[in-house]
């Protein structure tokens, strides 16, 4: 369980990246969603003891991230957004080194690394130097580390960015099977929607909403999204289109006018709240 109490971060240059967030995360998989610069990375880095909060605090399974750092670190994995593997050693060795850093014995590290590489689809490239593999494959090494760790709490900052659709499915099913609680950030709404138990929506350093996908989508239940080239009453500008929400049974008439109808996603919750995710 992760509990944040009015956690804040103001960077040295005055940027208020996280403006005071309080929440409890206790579901198996939580997705943090929000557009670029919303504060997702800053929040995750604070929770996983990589970055000191300006004020407020949080606890992970009862261990305070400031006072009880070592206890948090021993039971937590955190994969940074921009992490790179060590290029001159193999994929396999990258995993093993990490598991040694976590204090796992040599034999155990080897077995766990092998299992994770098979699960996540990097078994065939295990003996390649990490410098010689694709960006998506590099990402997978780190997801592999996280699931092989057996840690109680796992933070993944954009684990699937840059992955092809098939790899994303592999990564997600591995994440679902991980032993501990998982908190991740993602850009892909459909992913967050189909795979997380809980969603934390953030914008400009603040929490917009939190809840299960079903709860969050409730206000737009039985509705559809209409994308139109011309402005209508109640429509919201998104890029160069106008978006409005209508009951499903009313959608027909819009189709006749050449508008595009789309099912409701979490994107629409952002739009409804006045956050333009696509801008």
């Amino acid at each position: 369980m992760i509990e944040a109490k009015n956690i804040k971060k103001t960077y040295k240059d005055g940027t208020q990246a996280v403006k005071g967030m309080s929440f409890v995360l206790d579901k198996k998989v939580t997705s943090i969603i929000g557009h670029n610069g919303a504060g997702k990375t800053t929040l995750i880095r604070m929770l996983s003891t990589q970055l000191l909060p300006t004020s407020g605090t949080a606890s992970i399974n009862g261990h305070d991230i400031i006072k009880d750092v070592m206890a948090v670190r021993k039971t937590t994995v955190s994969i940074p957004q921009e992490i790179n593997p060590i290029g001159w050693i193999t994929v396999f060795d990258n995993l093993r080194l990490y598991l040694h850093a976590r204090g796992l014995p040599i034999k155990e590290s080897k077995l766990r690394a092998e299992k994770a590489m098979k699960e996540i689809g990097i078994w065939d490239i295990r003996n390649k130097h990490a410098a010689d593999i694709s960006g998506g494959q590099k990402r997978k090494i780190f997801v592999g580390m996280a699931i092989a760790s057996g840690a109680d709490t796992i933070f993944l900052d954009e684990p699937t960015t840059g992955l092809d659709p098939f790899s994303r499915i592999q990564v997600w099913s591995a994440i679902r099977k991980a032993k501990g609680q998982v908190v991740l950030t993602t850009h892909y709404m459909e992913e967050a929607q189909s795979l997380s138990d809980d969603v934390l929506m953030v914008d400009k350093g603040k929490i917009l909403s939190k809840g299960s996908v079903r709860q969050l989508l409730k206000p737009l239940e039985k509705m559809v999204r209409v994308e139109s080239m011309k402005k209508r009453s109640n429509s919201i500008p998104v890029g160069n289109t106008w978006v409005s929400y209508v009951k499903r049974e009313e959608a027909e008439s819009f189709v006749m006018e050449g508008d595009i109808i789309k099912p409701i996603t979490l994107d629409d919750i952002f739009i409804k709240k006045g956050v333009n995710l696509e801008s």
Binding site: R73, T76, S78, I79, Y98
Partner: peptide, 14 residues
């Protein structure tokens, strides 16, 4: 800075 590896290591109790 280049590998961002220190962040990864911090959260291992190294």
């Amino acid at each position: 800075f280049d590998l961002r590896y220190v962040d990864l290591l911090i959260t291992t109790a190294t």
